[in-house]
Design a protein around this nucleic acid. Structure first.
Lengths: 253, 253
DNA sequence: TCATAATTAAGCAAATATGAGCAGGAATAA
DNA sequence: TTATTCCTGCTCATATTTGCTTAATTATGA
């Protein structure tokens, strides 16, 4: 077994196992632990695995599965910038909607205590945040609690939204591509997002560049339903052109 | 289990549990309490959790922690006793409703993690509390946020309730008299309470004796709509007799 | 308020993991 | 063949991790 082969094997093992210990690999590949450590060192430098004391962890489990709290930390400054730009679009007398998401939560945190502003939301965290702003009127859609991100989704949420009229919807997303539009992880959540989009006069997507080009499981809505996109630098020029051709206003912060 | 994995697991546990104790984590992850404390320390430094004596709290829930005024809730032990008695009435398969109030919040705190239990509520605090119980299905009515007690009230709430069917409603109250029945401070809140009562097969009032004989501003419903009353000793014998004559079961704890 | 119980951080020792250095051996090139 | 390079396994000093103990701190309840 050549070095390269062995390293490939390690990656394969990590794909199916999430994590392995050094002794485990040593036995399985029939080489010394020193060799395994050397291999792991190389793989780590190439960002193919995540190294930890005693073994290694599949990098996907470290990177692509960040908990909500972690997500909040990731790209925090970017999200905050995007959120502050979004807040500038809000006018007195508006009825805005904020769906559940880390960027929209950031908008809630940056919202001034405006009188005559109504915020519709399905996020428990945003409710808690807006409870601080005495003058803002908060309307909650209701629905079934999804604990993972503390949002209220499902038929109750959708039915309530049917009766409401929203001036501006600020919506976050897991993925945004030109072909598939907005996508998210959960089908029921996707439906609730769709219900919001349907009732909003203006749909404003807030998404840092890490979301652009990413595709998630459930389709929410096509590109055509978006009016504005607030993002940060890093989005490719050609995509900007294509989106603008569709009539979407791109705001980079 | 590697260090990083273990810390990730802690975050995951905190995801939907709101809080965990150190011994709990120690047992669940099969490491010493010292190790757990070290992990929690690291996670706290990275702002991923909120550390507290005896355990850790999901950072997102810190703001739900009872405020000082709440901690000074009157008749706390009485409320807790009443709540524990109320919980005994809940059966697997039930759909129960909890309206906003300190005694109903106490019920939520005492609820076991039952599978096949659905809780309908209009209280943001109860949502936060029930986020702990992984297996319980939580349905939120939606509505306008009333900051004073963090409840969701108004037409949206009422309309949602019309479509739901509730086995047992546990409702708190500000006042209860033989002549005027249940009364509360806010007219809109009264209407939402009324909507709940209307859709419940069984109406169970939880009220410590300080509420009995008290009259508040807004009428909710007459005595006739009550099926059971859980209260504590201190209620007058003659009133008990009168209520029993109306068919209300009185349970004193 | 004060006493008691619970929780914690810090220090220590044991177990384990690590990387650097070295030597042997296989592959490669001259 | 000989020299060179590369890979490997071994050793050992050093790092890290962990659980235990203890003193101090922090809750709790009477």
């Amino acid at each position: 077994m050549f070095t390269h082969e062995r390293q490939k094997k390690i990656k394969e093992i990590l794909y199916s196992k999430k994590s392995v210990s050094v002794p485990e690999l040593s036995e399985q590949l029939d080489v010394s632990e020193s060799t395994i450590r050397r291999d792991l060192h190389i793989l780590e430098q190439n960002r193919l695995i995540y190294r930890t004391h005693g073994g290694a962890i599949n990098i996907d489990f470290v990177r692509f599965e960040p908990s909500l709290s972690e997500k909040e930390v990731q790209f925090r400054e970017e999200k905050s910038q995007i959120a502050r730009r979004a807040v500038q679009m809000i006018r007195e007398g508006d009825t805005i909607a904020l769906d559940g998401g880390t960027t929209t939560l950031e908008i809630a945190k940056n919202l001034p205590n405006m009188v005559n502003l109504t915020v519709v939301t399905n996020s428990v965290k945003i409710i808690a945040e807006l409870a601080n702003l005495q003058d803002v009127s908060v309307v909650v859609t209701g629905g079934n609690l999804r604990r993972m991100n503390m949002t209220l989704i499902g038929p109750i949420s959708n039915r309530t939204l049917k009766k409401l009229h929203i001036d501006k919807l600020f919506t976050g997303t897991i993925g945004l591509t030109y072909e598939e539009g907005l996508t998210t992880t959960d089908v029921i959540e996707a439906e609730t997002k769709r219900a919001m989009i349907k009732k909003a006069k203006e749909v404003i997507v807030v998404a840092d560049y890490s979301k652009i080009g990413k595709l998630a499981f459930a389709n929410v809505a096509s590109i055509d339903s978006i009016d504005k996109l607030i993002t940060n630098t890093g989005i490719s020029k050609s995509l900007v052109k294509k989106l603008q051709k569709k009539g979407i206003e791109i705001i980079t912060v």
